[in-house]
Nucleic acid binder design. Sequence first.
DNA 1: TTTCATGCAAATACTTTGCATAAGC
DNA 2: GCTTATGCAAAGTATTTGCATGAAA
Lengths: 162, 162
Amino acid sequence: MQQGSSQDQPKDKRAEDFRAVIETHGGRWTRERLAILQVIREIRGHFFAEEVERKLHERGHQISLTTVYRNLPLLVEAGIIRRACVSEEKKGGGSSYEHIWGEEHHDHLICAHCGLRIEFSYPAIDVLQEAVAQSYGFKLERHHLELIGCCTECQQRGCRER
Amino acid sequence: MQQGSSQDQPKDKRAEDFRAVIETHGGRWTRERLAILQVIREIRGHFFAEEVERKLHERGHQISLTTVYRNLPLLVEAGIIRRACVSEEKKGGGSSYEHIWGEEHHDHLICAHCGLRIEFSYPAIDVLQEAVAQSYGFKLERHHLELIGCCTECQQRGCRER
DNA sequence: TTTCATGCAAATACTTTGCATAAGC
DNA sequence: GCTTATGCAAAGTATTTGCATGAAA
């Protein structure tokens, strides 16, 4: 019952996970890392490294893009973000990431025509994935699923058939 | 000068698909495109643009990396290759691709510890994906699924728990 | 005080683009 | 002959790295 609003500061389990990973690497808990974490935790959907820097600046944090790049892998390792999206990448080959901490694991439905992204979760698929993994002797750690197609609206506008 | 025989009719259905896409764009059927297609059709698993260039050179084709880059999107559009792999990218952010033409659609099981990649196909998952897409009004065109975990061998060597 | 993190700039890596020339149609 | 493709070089963009300095433990 003590779970507060999204504005609460005290017990941030994400921060704890992040710290744990940092400590594992013999690292330190810096104000920059806290700021990066705070910005990322409020991002909904996917983002690029550059956007993290921009949001940091908007809030008055003068943190360099280099520092953002150096911390993204740690955030991935902490399970707070993940690499995302095969179907839509940046021009020069940039990678997109997505904030996933806490929320029930979800996957994406992506419209190839207008770029609409819908998050969904479908436990039955997860169960089957687990079954596949087991049949190959794998212990499943995570997965990445994108369903790419044509959304209702674009279909009405007449999306081309393949 | 090599006998291009650019006028012959390919028995290769991949080539037909590729040609169709090229024609749709008002493009032309060149010996370079044929060579790129032939190299890619023999690649198993995933690859980077640079590797296509290297294989072309190994076979005596002096085709530039630029040309490879210019043709990859057409090959994707023709359904011969697809962008691949969120879980393992190149250093500078390079994109990987994968030859998918013809083969029954498959997904990947990837060992996060040793990099082992296993292709699998599981129709039941495809059926569920179709169901999800329909429930959101999407017409599904394709999908991308990666199951990331720890393979049998790495488990025996003791892969860390998360 | 002893590391490690950060910021800056430079270096790398990947990808795209402009232009002259070659080649398909 | 008209138009597109290619190769090269250069530009553009993304990401990493070296080093001096500042900050955490």
